[in-house]
Design a binder for these strands. Structure first.
Length: 259
DNA sequence: ATGGCCTGGGTACCAGGA
């Protein structure tokens, strides 16, 4: 099976690229973040015409997460929102069961945090703690948690660590919060397991030609239950979706498993 | 030295992103 996470930076603005992706990759599940639409605006009909159905948590102009799966594969909403998050209306977490795969998936868009020490930063740490608590509840479930973690786990995941001193996304507090999610959930970072030394960036700023200069971060992850991790045969990004017409600033991250 | 771009809302410019 092929599972994908992708921060699309507005689903409606990105619809052509999303349909292109579905046609090219035929994923068994596509976890989306930053859909940036209301529930009424969610493009269910266009996705259905492409053979996909969706469950989604939509919050309007900010955030928004969704799970897409081919029609008839038994996609079912399992949980919307995260117990203990500071602002549940921000639409940052959704879980779904996919019957034909026999697994649960979670699509997550972690709080950005804005500035270290700010109120949003405190909410980011609180959100990571809520994720860890939920991951522990799901420790016996075969789970793929994918999304924009807004944390670069290691200095290897940052194009130039000296440019991020004092910045969010790289602090020990954030990294520790994310490690705790993986530890308590028994989850493995799929890309890092297969590629211990590659940067594997998933995001590049739109400004200043960052993509072409290689100024990226690896902040989008697929965290896979240890019981599933031996079945991983590949994990990587599709760089072509950071190119061409109206790309998102994030690329899709793809994991393939032999089941 | 600073910012450089993109999104939605709404139709000027701003919040938010990372």
């Amino acid at each position: 099976m092929k599972l994908v996470t992708w921060n699309v930076n507005s689903l409606r603005a990105r619809m052509e690229r999303v349909l292109e992706f579905l046609d090219l990759h035929s994923p068994d599940a596509l976890l989306l973040q930053e859909t940036k639409c209301s529930a009424e605006q969610f493009p269910e009909e266009e996705l259905a015409a492409a053979g996909y159905e969706a469950v989604h948590h939509s919050g309007g102009r900010w955030a928004g997460v969704a799970v897409l799966a081919p029609k008839g594969h038994g996609l079912k909403e399992a949980k919307v929102g995260l117990d203990g998050e500071a602002s549940p209306d921000q639409a940052r977490w959704i879980e779904a069961e996919i019957e034909s795969l026999g697994i649960r998936v979670a699509s997550v868009y972690v709080v950005n945090g804005q500035e270290v020490g700010s109120e949003p930063f405190a909410q980011k740490l609180q959100f990571l703690a809520a994720m860890a608590a939920r991951a522990e509840q799901l420790a016996e479930t075969e789970l793929v948690m994918g999304g924009d973690m807004n944390v670069a786990p290691l200095d290897l995941d940052v194009y130039d660590s000296s440019k991020f001193e004092g910045a969010t996304h790289v602090t020990e507090q954030e990294r520790s919060g994310l490690r705790t999610v993986a530890e308590r959930g028994g989850l493995v970072d799929a890309f890092r397991q297969l590629h211990p030394d590659e940067p594997g960036f998933t995001w590049w700023d739109y400004r200043g030609g960052s993509f072409h200069q290689g100024f990226g971060l690896r902040i989008d992850l697929l965290l896979v239950s240890e019981s599933l991790s031996a079945a991983i045969t590949g994990c990587g990004i599709d760089r072509s979706f950071r190119k061409g017409t109206k790309p998102s600033d994030h690329v899709p991250l793809i994991v393939e498993l032999t089941r």
